[in-house]
Design a protein around this nucleic acid. Structure first.
Lengths: 331, 331
DNA sequence: CTGAAAGCGCTAACAT
DNA sequence: ATGTTAGCGCTTTCAG
């Protein structure tokens, strides 16, 4: 009887067979007689043999593991992306190593270092704000340079040669704004944003501006760096201008804060309805059924990222990179 | 010049030194002359040498990786736990492999299989509902049997020999109920629950009942299996009994649904205020500032789980297991 | 101070 | 049908 985790070598001694016979038997090779095979398989089961996958990975040079780096898991968008990624990876027999950068380039960079060097077959990453602002992608490029397949999503950038998955921020924002104007009859819409410094924040703002311009409406954009500041600004704006009939928040907190302000106003002086729309998670709509949710298809983004990386892992040769644009939709 | 990822062997040839000299130089061994060391280190940097950590892990028998299995990442409680775990693991140089069971015992069991067998040094798990209901913990016990350190949190069970982290459900529930009675002056409180079949659901209900009994108040408990069903029941109860002055939800959705019903009532017939309290995430309070949030200290739970598992990894010898009880608090 | 060699557990090409 | 052997990249005795 064998203690702890048995190895092929131990079992070979116990059964008086060579290691390779054991190995082949366990993989059900046709080279081995069925008599021996069952003998070995039974014995392996008996002593709870579990192959050391680390040894196999080392030998074969891949781990069936994908690394994921996201800025924040408490944001439901990233939680949904993670959920999609995990599920799709699992279905393909892959494991997932996760790191949360908390928007710090140092944490991000360290994670990449720990993950690379053999542990992961590929990386899916949404770069931290800090990296995006400083346009510092050396840590990512270093992985790319080593030949590790990389897929970037959500916040993407030029200057990294890899596959990418994004939503069409400009178009989605444009269409949502038009929806407010044409379907909901809004004439005076304010847009709120906490992400004006980020690339996709700019695209969403552009979409809003263009839609307003197309319909000859004056746009009114409220941006801020902190939640409190934004809330204060929204309050002032709404109090000063009673014509406002629509609010379009282009990130989750910008939607939520606007919603709170509007609700407070409504309670205080039973103001007429203001139409609300914004980029946020479906679950937020539970709190305010009239909210028009711009669904970013987070899970789909995750799944597309997995598809791209698995394709890339299978054939590393291709040297042209692909950007998948996932359509957003409002519900 | 060396292509792709250089190995010790390749560098040894290039520098005309033995592999072991290279290895020792890179680990700054005192056996090697400082001249040789700098020569080797410089060359390694030049050709972007990155040690193959898979090889080291294989050799040493550990990976500095912890596995995490949670039922759902879209629930903010688990997202917070994950956040705490990831952060604390990272600070200790560990990586994190994450799997989402989606409450399925099969998914959970498969994940454990993939993770074990060398890839992880330890496992942190919150078992799926299915496992808890069927009291089927064979898959977890099989890991324990292999000698892998395991820490269970939130939903725990007898019958698995491992360290555990829980919050004191009974006490927290009791104290919150007393708070509603003594501080908020509630006399007729309803408790709402979607987790009546789970162990911690029962404990929370018990705490509620006991507190009500202690103050000679009649308890009124609403349980359901689906969100819709629960909402319907709450609505009926509140409509039929205008004396109700408090609601205590013992899980996140039970709090939220009650909140929606109460809000709707308030809008319709400006009913007097009902005090709301419940187990849910702080962020929910943003939607209703008067909500008394029972904070489960999710991040703390994660950190404690990491502390326990790291301790266990360092000395596997101890055979007595520890249950850490994290105090919850209401804000 | 430097080098040779064994070995972690496994697979696969190559004997027998 | 079974066995022998080399080797994945690295660390670590043990010898020189």
């Amino acid at each position: 009887m064998i203690q702890t985790r048995p190895t092929l070598s131990e079992m070979s001694k116990a059964l008086n067979l060579s290691i390779s016979t054991i190995s082949k038997s366990l993989s059900d090779s046709s080279e081995i007689s069925s008599l021996t095979k069952t003998r070995v398989q039974d014995f392996a089961k008996e002593c709870n043999y579990i192959p050391n996958s680390l040894a196999t990975s080392f030998l074969k040079g891949y781990t069936n593991t994908i690394g994921l780096v996201i800025p924040n898991i408490l944001n439901s968008f990233y939680a949904n992306v993670l959920s999609g990624i995990e599920k799709h990876l699992d279905e393909n027999g892959f494991k997932l190593i996760t790191s949360i950068s908390n928007e710090s380039i140092d944490k991000e960079s360290n994670s990449l270092k720990k993950m690379s060097a053999g542990y992961i077959d590929g990386l899916i990453i949404c770069p931290s704000k800090e990296a995006e602002l400083k346009k510092d992608y050396n840590h990512i490029n270093s992985l790319v340079g080593q030949g590790t397949p990389v897929v970037m999503f959500d916040r993407i950038c030029e200057g990294v040669n890899c596959d990418k998955v994004i939503i069409d921020d400009y178009k989605t924002s444009f269409e949502t704004t038009e929806h407010l104007i044409k379907e909901k009859g809004c004439k005076s819409i304010i847009m709120t944003s906490l992400i004006d410094s980020l690339q996709h924040g700019k695209l969403r703002a552009d979409g809003f501006k263009e839609a307003m311009a197309k319909h000859k409406l004056k746009n009114n954009i409220i941006v801020a760096d902190s939640i409190e500041d934004l809330k204060k600004k929204i309050k002032i704006t709404l109090n000063n201008d009673s014509n406002i009939d629509g609010v379009f928040g282009i990130n989750e907190q910008a939607v939520l804060q606007a919603m709170h302000v509007v609700r407070d106003l409504k309670v205080q002086n039973s103001k007429k309805d203001i139409v609300m729309a914004g980029f946020c998670n479906q679950s937020q709509a539970d709190h305010n059924p009239s909210l028009i949710v711009v669904n970013q298809n987070a899970e789909k983004i995750g799944i597309e990222a997995v598809k791209l990386i698995l394709k890339r892992i299978k054939k590393i040769d291709k040297k042209t990179f692909f950007t998948k644009i996932v359509a957003a939709c409002f519900l």
